[in-house]
């Protein structure tokens, strides 16, 4: 579904992504893992077209994304820090996105909206919301249009345990529906039940891209967190 070839992204002289080659297919849940500032968010923003790709190509559903915008119909995106127009209410924000997408109301996925009971605080302004509630709005928007690809950047950071659990179950459900899930997180323990593949990025370079089973087998560990830590340790020894 997503193919990335020779992607290099520079911010002035700083190289954020260095010759990245990746391929993600349907029904997978991919975890992007790496230290802070390693280029995870840059990679996600490049896929979304928020960062302009000058070197290399990204294909989403076999369409080159440069000079194209319709491919974003298939993507639901939950940003790390949701930044919303401050003097809009939750209702106005959600309605504006629905109008921008032009999707009829009966074709929306309202499951998370109901689970988070956002309708009861519909008239609150975005600027008055806590970080966690803002994240809930972001999560609702990411799943609202039944996208084929769901990109979640640090989804559970700031959510309370109950809300995080609801989101996690939703992610697993959508993955089983054959959606492609891309997720970045530092909380390795909670990725265990969700993901099927791991991409490890360091300083803008992809260190490895493996399925979870292979990774566990190679490192002789039972959990993803253990496996990653084992890899990191052996990397440091080299």
């Amino acid at each position: 579904m997503i193919t990335i070839k020779n992607l290099t992204k520079k911010f002035n002289k700083f190289i954020a992504l260095n010759n990245v080659n990746l391929s993600f297919s349907q029904g997978e849940a991919i975890a992007l893992i790496g230290p802070n500032g390693c280029g995870k968010t840059t990679l996600i923003k490049s896929i979304l077209g928020l960062n302009v790709v000058k070197s290399g190509t990204i294909e989403v559903l076999n369409n080159d994304i440069s000079n194209n915008y319709t491919y974003r119909e298939n993507i639901g995106y939950m940003p790390q820090i949701g930044r919303y127009p401050e003097n809009m209410t939750i209702e106005q924000t959600i309605n504006m996105i629905i109008e921008a997408r032009n999707v009829p109301k009966n074709q929306l996925d309202l499951e998370l909206l109901e689970a988070y009971q956002l309708e009861s605080i519909y008239s609150k302004k975005m600027s008055t919301l806590s970080g966690g509630t803002t994240q809930k709005v972001s999560a609702v928007l990411a799943f609202l249009f039944h996208p084929k690809i769901i990109i979640l950047d640090e989804p559970t950071a700031g959510l309370d345990p109950l809300a995080a659990e609801i989101l996690k179950n939703k992610i697993i459900k959508e993955k089983n529906n054959g959606k492609l899930i891309i997720i970045t997180s530092h909380l390795l323990s909670e990725l265990d039940d969700i993901i099927s593949q791991v991409v490890f990025i360091k300083e803008g370079t992809v260190i490895f891209h493996q399925s979870v089973d292979d990774l566990k087998k190679n490192t002789a560990s039972s959990k993803i967190s253990e496996a990653i830590i084992n890899v990191l340790k052996s990397n440091n020894h080299e």
Partner: peptide, 16 residues
């Protein structure tokens, strides 16, 4: 002040 609004719309299928 509309930076956030622009960012929000750009992650949707709306051309720049």
């Amino acid at each position: 002040n509309s930076n956030q609004f622009i960012e929000l719309l750009l992650s949707q299928p709306v051309p720049r």
